[in-house]
Write a protein that binds this DNA or RNA. Structure first.
Lengths: 187, 187
DNA sequence: GTCTATAGGAGGATAGAC
DNA sequence: GTCTATCCTCCTATAGAC
């Protein structure tokens, strides 16, 4: 049986995903966690403190997932495809990317930093695989791997936006397939 | 001299951009517009009604801008570059894309539809230019124009996310240049 | 058209009892 | 550790006077 602290973090993670930081209230967190007011303020200093714990937790969770694909088996291009095509909940959006739209998150360094770090790490791993792919002749060699890595990560983040705007997960897939087609070296 | 109605829409547009729908209050709108409570509720039925007017206004404004680049002078590839490299406030985010992260916006069809339409229109124009470029040999011919159009628009939307996450506009530029390099047919 | 008054509820947090 | 009481402000809107 989970303790109150754990349940509070978990419900905060969910609410941050669904409603964002501004849209998430301590009251809602407590209710979803089934935890009282006093308990919440015993374990955490307040909303920002809880969000900090929740964001760190979510961010940490994403690292092994991207590594599993990008540093897994297969040729470099196969690994890129595996990562980009990994199952994602297109209509729900990115648990992490979603948060940086929020002015209050960006204004608070301790909330923004964990996000900054996940993206930086992913960017580096993507660039490394791209360079491998270039060496292997699978990926176009006449492009800058760092810039293309940024483009790939941006496609994922932006694809969520398109999918939500149209309320259609197919938009997500289209964008991903579009950029994958471009990355592969022409035959 | 602007009337109250106009100023209300304008201040709502600004606040939606800065704080999102959930983070924008009628009170803040009135203060920024220099308009009283009674005046606001005289001209608009409430927050959602104001947001509807503001979102429509912002969305309408974006159409001629994209057309200016995509249907302007130059070769197809030059026009794509002009559009993607057009000056954007990377750290502020997209006036329109930003809104779609907001659960309340997505839940209200009358708020989401104007956004849906801008994106759909842009997507079609991008795809058309891409096909022109393919015919002209400037753009890789072995890719699906519709998918690549989705990828291009996603890069823009996602590049805002990266720039905000790192608080660095250079991330935006890197992503854009990365995808532009990929779109051009290899020599 | 615009102003002021009013209102019930939510947001975010503190205090002290148990 | 958790509960209840309490607090002040903001949110969003309505009512009615001017």
């Amino acid at each position: 049986m989970d303790d109150a602290r754990t349940r509070l973090i978990e419900s905060t993670r969910e609410l941050l995903w669904e409603r964002g930081y501004t849209g998430t209230s301590p009251r809602a967190i407590q209710e979803r966690a089934g935890v009282g007011q006093g308990s919440m303020y015993h374990h955490f200093a307040g909303k920002a403190d809880l969000a900090r714990a929740a964001i760190r937790s979510t961010a940490q969770e994403m690292v092994p997932r991207s590594r599993a694909h990008l540093e897994g088996p297969g040729t470099p291009l196969e690994r890129l495809r595996a990562y980009l095509r990994a199952e994602r909940d297109a209509l729900r959006g990115c648990r992490v990317g979603r948060l940086v739209q929020d002015a209050e998150v960006v204004a608070d360094a301790s909330l923004r930093e964990p996000i900054d770090e996940v993206f930086s790490g992913t960017l580096q791993r993507l660039a490394a695989v791209l360079r491998e792919g270039q060496a292997a002749g699978e990926v176009r060699a006449d492009v800058d791997a760092g810039q293309v890595a940024a483009a790939l990560l941006s496609v994922l983040q932006g694809a969520y936006v398109l999918a939500r705007a149209h309320q259609d997960p197919a938009r997500f897939t289209a964008a991903v397939e579009g950029v994958l087609a471009l990355v592969a070296a022409p035959r």
